[in-house]
Structure formats: structure tokens, C-alpha cells
Design a binder for these strands. Structure first.
Lengths: 227, 227
DNA sequence: CCTTGTGAAAACTTTCACAGCT
DNA sequence: AGCTGTGAAAGTTTTCACAAGG
């Protein structure tokens, strides 16, 4: 029961979110109690890892028994800060922004998209999935009025930094950035980047490595100076 | 000049992809030579980290000088396996799939989307961004004929496992999975998951933590057994 | 005097292994 | 007997610090 002020890693947090997703599924099947072994079987996580991750936040299970599904969900929601509704805006309603605007999977986790913004006059006023697209100028007003916490940034790279600066000014707490650039902001605001091309490159590397385990690939030795 | 068979971490690979992106930008500005300090200033990486990452693959720079931009790009492309075209298919042409199909940012890194598939008869035959949507039954034929390496999986969760199994059978080497489930496949096939809801939850946690640094938050102590 | 490349140290994360509760 | 919670060990990644080269 040590608990303590040990710092919790990002990876642990990301896994907590995964656990939550699994638990929701188990809840739908009316499972009452689950063990670390059962839950980790579906995900790619060891039972030890699961228990260790939870241990940073207290004793959430019962020895000899397991974890009560409902209870653990509530705890995880509280830890992640989604026990109360979290309001989100989408900035940039291109193809990707529209897709996210229409994505139904956020509400399971208490995220609510409350507004969307775009520069393009042709888009302003349109309604997608019940959300009216607003002018960029209104961001600040809306964020303050609706107490928006997070923004999903899906504008083109060229304008991403400018828009992000604006978001930071009006008090947004975090940005999920889909533009393939590194945003530069005060570090009171959290940023997570989602970069599909980077993921594809990583995947490309990994998949080739898997193939080349036995072929004497030339890949792994690249030493040659320029000129 | 040790090099060696040290294993390279995933994070290193992901960063190499980021470096590559930065280098492309520097190339456009006609910068000829860059130092580890310069390149890491834009990204969120230390110069040491940058040099260490590269050191796994040989001596790519010149002491006292820096790295030749063109040269480093070529090396990174070779390391990542994108010096030759890499063919990709998109499976599931819903909103997200369409958005990715129209995304122009893959070609910079030698990825080419060669085909797209959907179950929905109403979509089959349509052309998006020059790519004709095919029936799912054709996947195997197309993958073999066009020598497809990677698949982007954007089908609903319910069918994701089934489709993934099919992809594995026809020889796909890696899957970029947008469905929020853990795919279960032979480990000769690489999988990377992109899960926007998980990212949002992580962001929510991080942004709250940043706020609560000084407020005596109740968040970090949750000890209470059920019943 | 500049910047790379790299062992060695420090920091961090995961796995192990077992005590402790049900 | 079964499963959690957790220190300690093992393993991994990052940072440090400096020799070597331009």
C-alpha cells in the first residue's frame, strides 16, 4: 500500500486507456469480476504489467479474487479525468476533420465534441453530425463560453502553428495535433502528435526487419562518409 | 565505428522518420549541411539523442562539420526501407478511409496507395483520388498482382479481425490498424495501432496533471476496495 | 573551436518472485 | 488454492562527458 508520489509514465497512461476499453467490452458481456490474467490476454500486455500499472493508483483489486469490472472502470475514468464530461473542439474541417467530427467512438469515454471551426467560408454554417461549423474568429469566445478543454487540430501544416498559438492563448489545455509539424508552445499546454506517415514509415521498417531476419540483408550496415 | 548487432528500439525508428521529415524541409530551403543541434531544435529531441539514434546505423556525419542533408536523407530512406516505392492498400472506405485515400502526404515518403476496398456495393466502382474502390473479394488477387506490402485498416471494429486475418493470409507484411481492437495475428506480420480515443484520454490525463501540479488534487490517491 | 561518435553512468521501465489477503 | 500488490532484479533507453577528427 505504498502508493507514493512515484511518477507515472506516459506508457502506463496509454495502457490505462486500453484497459478501460477492454473493461467496457467485458461490462457489455455482463462479466462481474476479472483477473489481471484475463484482461491482459486480449491486449498485448503481461498480467504483471497490468497490476503494476494499477498499483501506482492504489489497491484497486481484491487478492485471491480479481477486479470488479464496474468498480475498476470508475476508478480508471477518475484517474484519466473522464469521469466528468470533457469538451472538445475540432479545428480544421477538411476530410480528416470531418471524419473525426462524425466518429461516434468518443462519447463512450465522456468526450463531447461541442464545436468545429474552419477558415473556408463555404464550410462555415454547414452542419455535420449535429455540429455547426463556425468561423475561426469565434474560437476564443466559444472556448471560454463552453469551457472547452481539448482541441483536435486538423488544419494544413502551413497554418498549424498559427492556429495552435491562438488555441493556447484562449486557454485550451491540450492539443491533439494531426498536422505533421512540431508545434512550439508554452509547456503549460500538452500536445500529442498523430502522424500517419510516420507510423507508416515505422511499420515499413518493422515489416522489412521481420522479413530480413535470415536473408543477409545489406540494410543494417550503412557506413560511408559523404564526398 | 562499433555499429554492431545492437538492437534498435521502436522509438529510435519513429524518430528517424521525424528526422526525415525535418530534413525534407531543410532540403527545400536549400540547406546543405546541418548539425545535430540545429535539427533537434525543431523537434523535441536532444542533439545527443539524435546522434545516438544515427550511430546505430554507422557514421553518417563528419566531425566538426555536421551532416550533409541530401546524404542523410538517402541514408534514412534506405534504413527505413522507403528508398524504393512501397505499395499500400486501404481497406475500408468509410469517412476515415476516404480521408486517408485523399491524403497527399504519403508520396513524399515513397508510399503509393495502389488500391482500396470496401464491402459496400454502393461504394464499389467509385473513384476517389484516382483510385477505384474494389470489392473485398479481390484483395488477395490485387495484393499478389501489385506486390502490396502494407495495408491501412479502416473497417469497423466488428469486422476488423476477420479482414485482418484475410490480409495476413494473402501475404501483407504490415497493418496500420485504426480499429480500436487488438488484432490477433501470426507474428510474422507487423501491426501498429492508431487509436484516437486512446490518444484523447492520454491527453486528458496529461493536461489535467499539468493543471493540478499545485492544487492539492485528490486524483493521485485512490485507495478503496470494493464492497 | 567546432561537431560527431560512443562508452559509461544515470534514469527509467518491465519482469520476476513471493509475501499477504480472500 | 488463487490472485493481488510490490520490492528487487533485469533489461532498456536516455543523458553525460569526452576522445577524435575537421
Amino acid at each position: 500500500m505504498a502508493l507514493s508520489k512515484k511518477k507515472v509514465s506516459n506508457e502506463t497512461i496509454r495502457r490505462l486507456a486500453l484497459y478501460l476499453r477492454s473493461l467496457h467490452k467485458l461490462q457489455e458481456i455482463n462479466l462481474d469480476i476479472v483477473s489481471s490474467g484475463q484482461i491482459s490476454a486480449n491486449l498485448n500486455v503481461s498480467p504483471d504489467q497490468f497490476r503494476k500499472d494499477l498499483s501506482y493508483f492504489g489497491s484497486l483489486g481484491k487478492r485471491g479474487v480479481g477486479y470488479k469490472v464496474d468498480n475498476l472502470i470508475k476508478h480508471l475514468e477518475k484517474i484519466l479525468g473522464i469521469d466528468k464530461e470533457c469538451r472538445v473542439i475540432i479545428v480544421g474541417v477538411g476530410k480528416l476533420g470531418s471524419a473525426l467530427l462524425a466518429y461516434p467512438g468518443f462519447s463512450n469515454f465522456n468526450f463531447r465534441i461541442v464545436s468545429a471551426f474552419d477558415n473556408d467560408r463555404k464550410k462555415v454554417g454547414k452542419i455535420i453530425n449535429g455540429i455547426k461549423i463556425e468561423e475561426m474568429e469565434n474560437i476564443s469566445r466559444v472556448v471560454q463560453k463552453l469551457e472547452v478543454h481539448l482541441a483536435v487540430l486538423t488544419v494544413p501544416s502551413e497554418s498549424a502553428q498559427m492556429v495552435a498559438t491562438k488555441l493556447a492563448k484562449c486557454g485550451i489545455k491540450g492539443i491533439l495535433n494531426f498536422a505533421p509539424i512540431s508545434l512550439n508552445l508554452s509547456n503549460s499546454i500538452r500536445i500529442l502528435n498523430v502522424d500517419v506517415a510516420t507510423e507508416l514509415m515505422t511499420l515499413r521498417y518493422l515489416s522489412r526487419k521481420a522479413c530480413n531476419l535470415n536473408t543477409g540483408s545489406t540494410l543494417d550496415r550503412v557506413t560511408e562518409n559523404f564526398e
